[in-house]
């Protein structure tokens, strides 16, 4: 058994890697699993694992764990990870630190990762556990000067970049095509709805607008002023539909030019009669009695339907 232990220690030194157990004072114990201590190049990572066992009522002060970030000009702590689990009446912490070296040595050289201190605290006091430095040997990737016998640059030329792997994009491409088509269709629909080019010659729907205006503003149009506003909206709709201003005397001509509205001729004439009373005889109340707002709304609705049917 003693022989085995000796062999392990010898082997461990030879491999440069191994577990090192430190038993600090008190009940806690720290076990360090170091990486191999040689054969590193610029950019390589080293992983140091610490297992810290604390006694009852004790815990590791997490703020004493080194934080990721550059430690000096060539060494960076790439990541720092701690896990804990209950171990008997104490706690077992497993701390994994990954270092990365950016040192570009000109010859094989021993470098040292600096040690640090972990703090363990309990209810009464704190104490510290010292972690030792770790030395490792790093080497250049290539020889510094090409030998005269070598063809020029064969050893110094940088290898060509690896070809980037091609991603499979079938699903994305299909999705892109579908969404583009959908967007274009929506744009066409919007252009038609707003009568943009090339639909700018689409006949306007003044009565539909008027009907919508009267329907959606029924509350505000209920007074005499609102009644006048509703009449004006309908007048402007007639003007737009005819392409000129339509006066009461022009109704017959308008209806003959736009036969789709002819079925509502009586109502239209009544509208113009009420409008005359409201605007030119100062008899808004009588006009409202003759053709109240709901009748206006109904007429505009009918004209709107007729307008859409004729389009």
């Amino acid at each position: 058994m003693r022989l085995m232990l000796l062999l392990c220690v010898v082997f461990g030194f030879a491999a440069g890697a191994g577990a090192q157990s430190v038993t600090p004072s008190g009940t806690s114990s720290l076990t360090v699993v170091e990486p191999r201590a040689f054969g590193y190049f610029i950019g390589d990572k080293l992983e140091r694992v610490f297992e810290l066992r604390t006694g009852p009522g004790e815990e590791l002060d997490l703020s004493s764990i080194p934080r990721p970030g550059p430690l000096n000009y060539w060494l960076e702590l790439a990541s720092s990870n701690v896990e804990s689990e209950a171990d008997g009446d104490g706690t077992l912490y497993k701390l994994t630190l990954v270092y990365q070296t950016f040192y570009a040595p000109l010859d094989p050289r021993k470098l040292t990762i600096p040690g640090f201190t972990l703090t363990i605290k309990n209810a009464q006091a704190t104490r510290e556990v010292q972690v030792r430095d770790f030395g490792f040997i790093t080497s250049p990737i290539r020889q510094l000067f090409a030998a005269a016998s070598q063809s020029s640059g064969s050893a110094v030329e940088v290898q060509p970049d690896a070809v980037a792997p091609r991603l499979v994009t079938g699903t994305e491409r299909t999705a892109l095509l579908i969404s583009t088509a959908t967007a274009l269709l929506s744009l066409v629909g919007l252009a038609w709805h707003n009568a943009w080019w090339p639909f700018h010659k689409r006949p306007q729907r003044p009565f539909t607008d008027a009907a919508r205006f009267i329907r959606s503003n029924a509350e505000t149009l209920s007074g005499p002023r609102g009644y006048r506003a509703a009449l004006l909206k309908l007048h402007r709709a007639f003007d737009l539909a005819a392409g000129r201003r339509v006066l009461a005397d022009d109704v017959a001509q308008f209806l003959s030019e736009h036969p789709e509205f002819a079925p509502y001729g009586d109502e239209v004439r009544k509208l113009f009669a009420s409008s005359r009373r409201a605007f030119f005889a100062n008899e808004v109340e009588q006009a409202r009695a003759q053709m109240p707002l709901p009748a206006l709304a109904e007429l505009s609705q009918h004209l709107s339907v007729a307008e859409r049917r004729a389009a």
């Binding site: 004006l232 007048h235 402007r236 003007d239 000129r244 201003r245 006066l247 409008s275 605007f279």
Partner: peptide, 8 residues
């Protein structure tokens, strides 16, 4: 004139 000026 009568086609353009809105009435009323």
């Amino acid at each position: 004139l009568f086609e353009r000026v809105p009435a009323p």
